[in-house]
Design a protein around this nucleic acid. Sequence first.
DNA 1: TAAATTTAGTTCGTGTTAGAACTAAGTGTG
DNA 2: CACACTTAGTTCTAACACGAACTAAATTTA
Lengths: 147, 147
Amino acid sequence: MSRPSEFLPTLQALVQCYQAFETFSAADIRGLGLTPPQFDIVATLGNTAGMTATELGEKTLITKGTLTGVVDRLVGRGLVERTAHGSDRRCQIIRLTPSGEALFARVFPSHMAYMAECFADSGAADHERWQGALRALEQIFRKKEKA
Amino acid sequence: MSRPSEFLPTLQALVQCYQAFETFSAADIRGLGLTPPQFDIVATLGNTAGMTATELGEKTLITKGTLTGVVDRLVGRGLVERTAHGSDRRCQIIRLTPSGEALFARVFPSHMAYMAECFADSGAADHERWQGALRALEQIFRKKEKA
DNA sequence: TAAATTTAGTTCGTGTTAGAACTAAGTGTG
DNA sequence: CACACTTAGTTCTAACACGAACTAAATTTA
């Protein structure tokens, strides 16, 4: 067993890091006229032929109940559309409209460039260190949730 | 300048790690009858003589507009109270009521024990690695937001 | 095949979230 | 002192978050 004085600083560092990212990223996304979940969806659907709501939810980490509302708003703005799935009438294929494709082509590169500035001085070794640490920490939580 | 193929995996790892933590932690907190922000507030106020709303917001990373509502609900349940600040009439001191203290004494150790199970096999070196990586990554976002 | 179970999405209730506009109170400068 | 400015908290709006309950359509089981 571990003591809080050992692991609490790790959890605080995780939350503070995530918040810093979210705040920084969202400021740019809002300036592009989207909310962060909306951007995630548009970015995920870009350069694809569409996908089911379940698949979209898995990729964006948005739960299905929330996804309905976010997609509703994007449909209302004419950026995505729901089309029938060929063989399974429970499913829908969600995909970008031409207007949504145009938005994707504009905002995705813009936001990538914005984020790239952060990492101008970071090398491959930095990324390996971050990804290695983050994936190990993620497993810490996932291994317990199975039990 | 950096390429998305380099830094996107880092960002995805961060988001997935954070989500895994949040989901795992929240499941326990909800079982204790609190929401995650409510738990944060009770945990922050525990073993203190109270603090101003601004200070509480800084520690819990809850913005002031949100804090009003969360504190309202805790006041409604009789767990915290707002008292006048001695010298500055704009401020309030928010602190736990006796009932809130009792709740803190029950749920805080319980949740710590729940989280400690995750880190049963982690040593000091693991925590140093995680904290070092997370703090460095956090600075990546903070150094740009100043500019 | 009929019943039981699973899966896909929607709806609903409660709570959180950020930012912006607002009020009240303190601080600074002339 | 009077004015501009800052700070503390609340209110407001739009959107998101999650779980639970629900409908409809598939799939499994007997």
